[in-house]
Design a protein around this nucleic acid. Structure first.
Lengths: 332, 332
DNA sequence: CAGCAAATTGGTAGCGCTGCCAAAAAAACC
DNA sequence: GGTTTTTTTGGCAGCGCTACCAATTTGCTG
């Protein structure tokens, strides 16, 4: 049972009511082309009087270029993506673009299906997380001719536009920081890495850096579910149960790290002298804990903003590295 | 400079390639009406071969009933809204609906403008937060003839469908709980209530309940900005600097409450014996803190799910009360 | 006031698809 | 075999708007 709209007022009716031609109404409404002030007033009056709401579906169809921007994101639970959407939507709204989204649950197959569904709306751009996509997705996006923006990961080849930073660099710098601080027996607590490839990249370059400095990763605890505070707490508990002499733990992100932090608080494990904790993302909450969380702050909102900016200005293909900031904090 | 799509393959071309009529292709693709198995194969082969992606813009225009659902939400920073979107988008995707959104920043004027922009897409439904809207918004929504769903607040008259719970009841129960626990000198720390009317409702019924039990609110601290952990911490600090003999503090939500919790941890204020803390929302993080946060858990994801369900089934106007759950926790 | 450029305006052909209807083909029946 | 049904099909008129072009009006200049 499909919903039917009640009869709506159309541009033609406005034209009739205002005593002008359809194209004139269209021009006035879009403020495009020329028309006299008097005409403008009459049209606006008719619009007001009839309560006319332009039909963007029809407008888009007639003009081929759309003002929709499609987001295909892995999750809405991971704060990263709402943050990106937030940055982007502000810029898009200013420019009268409309955001459309769907959620893949970190499933590349679902990403492909959803990207296809999105393309059916003929968006001006499709924004995706990361630069790993199925062959089918890539082929489809290429063929679509619409702009493609890959977000939050610069470690790979961009299809068109990429905005973000290097996750590998983030992993590397995290490791370098811990080593510089003198930690040598380092562990890792993370969530499902097969799905979140960006976390996987951070982890692998983190490990490589440790190994390169003769302090290879001592132990790891990978939890099956999504990243969460509770999983972080549980993960650290398990890790410490197995391995007693760790001096630092790297977490797949701040949610997990906070869980670890809480575990230490609850168990009376002194931070950072007994155990250091390092996260990833730079959530606001990490600044308000009794000891500020040591982490890497990522430019999530800015990523959305810049991405949207590039789309609305129809910028040429490019990769924009927004970098990240290492926050020393007090937990490592 | 508007982006132009490269020439796309159309349904007519598929029809030609498959050697059938346009309407046949349309029927096969939508699996609607009748056609032979052989025809189906030929059409699908042509679709595959040409890489045809149906144009939903055109389809929607031709069929009047759209599969877009528009969300007009106050914020993406407040986890509540991503949670609602998450619940809704899962259901919508299953039913081949498409979610569109925009963000009002808690500004009713902006809500009106954005709702108007949304209506231009002729959505099947518009979902809004709360039941307070400008006169213009209400009038416009009424006139649009599309379904209207008001989320997360049942304290008011619904335009069409409403899904959520009573914020007044939440405030009342929070107060009753604290009173039952024996707290009498109670304070409040909140964020900007003029904008977040739902938090305002909780607060006012909280105060009324206290007053009705001869334990009127002792002090309050309202912070100008948005709700955040840092503001919560700052707010409690300020409140305690002014008022020394409080035994419990009610926060406008869990973010703020966690900030207060951290302040106590940092200052060595023993919880709950020296000071009790009570929040609102039931964020996951509140379950993983050393002492689980006392709060009210709201059905955010379920709100989105049910709302979407009602829209896709084109349910009659109704108000669905999903209730909430008081979590005793260990901070009050 | 003619003569020409500039500013306004209206008409109309699509945009790509769906919905309706009638035509054609296939199946069922007497 | 001839009908009557039933199933499949194709044709085509819009959906509401924009883009293009031609027609009209206005404003200036000499």
């Amino acid at each position: 049972m499909e919903f039917k709209h009640q009869p709506t007022v159309t541009l033609a009716e406005v034209a009739e009511a205002a005593g002008v031609g359809e194209s004139t109404v269209s021009r006035v409404l879009r403020n495009h082309g020329s028309f006299s002030g008097k005409t403008r007033e009459r049209v606006m009056a008719a619009v007001e009087r009839l309560g006319y709401v332009p039909n963007r579906i029809a407008g888009t169809l007639a003009s081929t270029g759309s003002r929709l921007v499609a987001f295909v994101i892995p999750s809405l639970s991971n704060i990263v993506f709402p943050d990106v959407l937030r940055g982007a939507s502000a810029v898009l709204e200013e420019n009268r673009y409309q955001a459309v989204f769907s959620v893949t649950d970190y499933d590349p197959g679902k990403e492909e299906a959803l990207a296809a569904a999105m393309l059916a709306w003929r968006p001006a751009a499709v924004m995706l997380a990361g630069c790993e996509h199925t062959e089918g997705t890539v082929k489809m996006l290429r063929a679509s001719g619409c702009r493609v923006v890959e977000l939050l990961d610069l470690d790979g080849d961009a299809l068109d536009i990429a905005v973000g930073f290097s996750n590998r660099a983030a992993g590397r710098e995290s490791a370098a920081f811990l080593l510089k601080r003198g930690y040598r027996r380092i562990g890792y607590v993370g969530h499902d890495l097969n799905r979140d490839t960006r976390a996987g990249k951070r982890f692998s370059s983190f490990c490589e850096t440790l190994a390169a400095h003769d302090a290879p990763l001592v132990a790891r605890e990978i939890l099956a579910g999504a990243s969460s505070v509770e999983n972080g707490r549980l993960g650290l508990e398990r890790l410490l149960a197995r391995t007693t002499d760790l001096d630092a733990v790297y977490f797949s992100n701040d949610d997990m790290a906070l869980g670890g932090y809480f575990h230490c608080l609850a168990e009376g494990i002194v931070i950072p002298s007994k155990l250091a904790i390092f996260g990833y993302n730079g959530l606001d909450i990490g600044r308000a804990t009794p000891q500020p969380l040591s982490t890497i702050r990522t430019p999530r909102v800015a990523t959305g903003q810049i991405a949207a900016q590039l789309v609305v200005t129809n910028a040429p293909p490019q990769a924009v590295d927004l970098g990240f900031e290492l926050i020393e904090g007090a937990t490592a």
